[in-house]
Design a protein around this nucleic acid. Structure first.
Lengths: 329, 329
DNA sequence: TAAAACAAGGAAAACGTTTTCCAAAAGAAT
DNA sequence: ATTCTTTTGGAAAACGTTTTCCTTGTTTTA
């Protein structure tokens, strides 16, 4: 294996000089830089990232903490897009990234988790699917031992940024569009998981809309479960004009229930998952580009690692009506 | 950060002794072992896996090479299950694992890929979605620089194992069941991707079945594409009795086409993806537990790293009829 | 009882980087 | 010409392990 030592010898300089060139340090002349880079080319040298990680804490590796406790194909789709987006950007930024699923750390205490991450030379973390009641992850963020980016949860401190869309506005937008298209007055809103950050935001958006338009609204918690949304719809949809759901999966459950009850009500969802194209009826939904969200999350983490302050990053969303014809390929 | 040095000091032994205890080396007395383990407990010590990886090539890290060139939610679902299954077992085996998606290495030559993997201290690899014409991955396996486990491709040498189900038999089984249930004689078989290993195996299963039952069979390549399967069905299904597809996604495409043509033909698929529960019509399919396949793949890789010979591992499959009621949750 | 064999544990090199500090050379200021 | 800065590059320690030898002390064998 060709190491930095070989490059140094080949270029006729010291090891430290090579390292400086590689990491764009100042105080190295243009000429030496050229010589070193030529040697790197000729020897086909690739730095050993493991050694680099060991040597410098701040070069650092990055971990994705992915919650996979809800096992549905829709969640798989969303997680997969997040992971590919994040890892793609990580590679472009030359960040070494590992993926941890929740089953890997769900039995750990905060201290154990911190120790584990440090043992892996992790200095930055992206957290997915964090709920309000997740003690361990909250302590992890609060500890500020690592730079963190939390996706879809408004947590910010000096070393923590949050990334996501404006859930409140998105819910408002998609519901308003659906309600105005169909001149509805009585709304059944199937909210998400209790103690979910996005759940509350989306509900706030709905409440604002209801008050602005003078709607009557019944709110029930669907826990992001297709089955529960189905049951709720069965029970309450009859004397409502529209069913607004805080996720596509629940929208699908609601739609299936309506079809079974043989009544028509407009339904709208949230997320823009592919499955929406397969259920026959078209529905309005909020489209999020999860891969893009995660690319931004990785970008933000990189900035934090470079010394930037934590902040809240809000990304754009769009509305769409998912059609089978657009999805098939 | 508490290191092996602190443990050594706390236990009153040398660093090397601690390392020996940690790695279950011989030539250390039971008493010393106890003392060291107690120190480990008391100091809450976790070995730094990065340092370990740097120090010993054979402790080694493991990489998942995941092909994500086909972007459909079905593939996302399958890949996600593979990844979680593999990483889960890796953690249990204390193997450090990283995930590489095809977009990360698709522009590399074999040599570049090998160098990159070595730079990451990778010693073992699991390869997903390898096609017959993938030069780079074939050379990678042939180079025998790493221990490899190839999922769903029958590649074996001293340092390479293959893991997967018996695709030939599975295709035979599911088609036979469907054909006998409906007393069919004329089969439209929509095969997978040209140059795919499983494509050939599954076709062989169908050919055997056709000859045994005296069926007439038309074979067309659907490339694992829902759209192509749909078009093929539109064109050829009319004077056939049954449409057998080499994947669920294609089966869905075929079924949608039949519904649109307003003719009934039994259809069967292959994989057991969740989406099958959403298309309204029930179909026979082959169920693979992808997470379990990948757990086995990781297990096999561990064995290879321990010095075992490469071999072919065949896992069981089952037949099922995917119903919405079984899938909703 | 001497020699040989073995068991247990320690010292130190090695892995491939980064980074701190220091020395030399060159330029600027007096 | 002398001193003071500044620029450039090198030497060596550090990161936390593993692993190879080597030194003891103890047991076995003849």
């Amino acid at each position: 294996m060709v190491s930095i030592k070989d490059v140094a010898k080949h270029a006729g300089v010291a090891i430290s000089t090579v390292s400086k060139v590689l990491n764009n340090y100042p105080n190295v002349s243009e000429e030496t830089k050229q010589r070193v880079n030529r040697a790197v080319e000729e020897l086909n040298f690739v730095p050993n990232s493991v050694a680099a990680a060991l040597s410098s804490k701040q070069a650092g590796r990055v971990a994705l903490l992915v919650n996979v406790n809800m096992k549905t194909s829709a969640v798989d789709e969303i997680n997969m897009q997040h992971i590919t987006g994040a890892l793609n950007r990580a590679m472009e930024l030359s960040l070494d990234a590992i993926t941890l699923f929740s089953f890997m750390y769900q039995n750990m205490t905060v201290d154990e988790l911190i120790r584990y991450l440090k043992s892996q030379s992790i200095t930055g973390i992206i957290i997915y699917g964090m709920s309000k009641e997740d003690k361990v992850l909250h302590k992890l963020v609060a500890a500020q031992e690592f730079k963190c980016v939390v996706v879809n949860a408004p947590l910010v401190n000096e070393s923590t940024s949050s990334v996501g869309i404006d859930d409140r506005k998105a819910q408002y937008d998609v519901a308003r569009k659906t309600i105005e298209e169909n001149r509805c007055k009585r709304v059944l809103y199937i909210a998400g998981k209790r103690n979910g950050y996005v759940t509350d935001e989306r509900l706030l958006g709905m409440e604002q809309l209801a008050s602005e338009l003078g709607l009557t609204m019944l709110v029930r918690n669907g826990e992001f479960s297709e089955l529960q949304a189905r049951n709720i719809t069965m029970k309450y949809a009859k004397n409502k004009d529209v069913v607004v759901c805080a996720s596509d999966l629940m929208a699908i459950g609601a739609m299936k229930a309506l079809i079974e009850m043989d009544i028509f009500r407009p339904v709208c969802g949230f997320d823009g998952i592919v499955l929406m194209g397969y259920v026959g009826k078209q529905m309005n939904t909020v489209c999020q580009n999860f891969a893009e969200v995660s690319r931004n999350a990785m970008e933000e983490l990189h900035a934090l690692l470079g010394g930037a302050q934590g902040r809240k990053l809000v990304l754009p969303h769009s509305l769409a009506r998912m059609k089978y014809e657009d999805i098939i390929c």
